[in-house]
């Protein structure tokens, strides 16, 4: 009966994952490998293609007749380039803020989460959301680039590296992490449980009532362990390897917050989305 409960929990979290997250790993991998019936994503590999594609950033569906619209930009001026970079950064922020809402909805669906102290719910989310967002990006990435805009656009890693500093340094650590993380070959059912484990971390600073959080996490951990054994019978020590990723994640998040602080100081026109601001304030 206990194993049945753990399987039911895994099923419940997977259903909530499908309900709340618009781009699953299964869909992302199909797009990246060209095995989808939809059109291939629009590729952004330089400033010109970013200008062509930017009107579709954060659109769930690109109107296909515009896909190869010719844009008369022979050379992009550097001040225009700065503007385009900032605009792109702002659309990344809007999508991130939307994704924070999605993670929050997912967290609320974890059995017992809404019964925790409200301050602790805020703390758990504050510390978990960027970690979860970084894990969510991994399936969208390969060594050459990343899907954005719900899989409508593929942006190359080289292009992201070519942006001006510190934008250029921002994504590289995420690519390095993702390429290694993807080698674990987790699927969407595994990811749903892993997200819940991350959210229910009882060691976040400032938690008021740790015991009920640890109890909830322990149950999800059992479910994850059982699920990984059944789903990946040939993958040795997968449970331990997945949990080890949580340590790497904390470093990436702390570096990310540092990048954003640098940006705030160096960019006069930078305004950070209020939700992201609230999350990053006094985070690390």
């Amino acid at each position: 009966p206990e194993a049945a409960d753990l399987r039911a929990l895994a099923k419940h979290l997977y259903e909530s994952y499908l309900k709340n997250f618009p781009l699953t790993k299964a869909k992302a991998r199909a797009i990246l490998s060209g095995k989808t019936s939809d059109n291939a994503p629009f590729v952004v590999h330089d400033m010109k293609s970013l200008l062509e594609g930017e009107q579709f950033i954060n659109c769930r569906q690109i109107p296909r007749q515009d896909h190869h619209r010719h844009l008369n930009v022979s050379s992009v001026q550097s001040d225009l380039q700065r503007e385009v970079e900032l605009r792109f950064f702002h659309s990344c922020q809007s999508r991130s803020a939307e994704a924070v809402s999605e993670v929050t909805e997912f967290a609320k669906s974890i059995p017992g989460f809404l019964n925790l102290d409200l301050n602790d719910q805020v703390t758990l989310l504050k510390y978990a959301v960027i970690e979860v967002l970084i894990i969510m990006m991994a399936p969208l990435m390969n060594k050459d680039g990343t899907l954005i805009s719900y899989g409508q656009i593929f942006m190359t890693r080289e292009f992201l590296k070519s942006l001006r500093k510190p934008f250029s340094d921002m994504m590289e650590p995420k690519f390095e992490f993702s390429v290694k993380f993807n080698m674990l070959e987790l699927d969407d059912t595994d990811m749903a449980l892993f997200f819940a484990v991350i959210i229910l971390s009882g060691d976040r600073p400032g938690l008021l009532n740790v015991k009920p959080i640890e109890d909830l996490q322990e149950n999800v951990l059992h479910s994850l362990e059982l699920h990984l054994k059944m789903n990946h019978p040939d993958s040795l020590h997968l449970f331990a390897k997945v949990l080890q990723k949580m340590t790497d994640l904390r470093q990436i998040v702390s570096d990310h917050v540092h990048f954003i602080q640098l940006l705030k100081e160096s960019e006069i026109n930078m305004c950070l989305h209020p939700l992201l601001q609230e999350i990053m304030k006094d985070l690390y």
Binding site: S94, V100, S101, L118, N119, K126, P274, E278
Partner: peptide
């Protein structure tokens, strides 16, 4: 803490899916 995280707090309290 909820005072310093008004949007997050609101998202948590919303009964319908959040619109950001």
């Amino acid at each position: 803490l909820t005072e310093r995280h008004k949007i997050l707090h609101r998202l948590l309290q919303d009964s319908s899916p959040a619109d950001g």
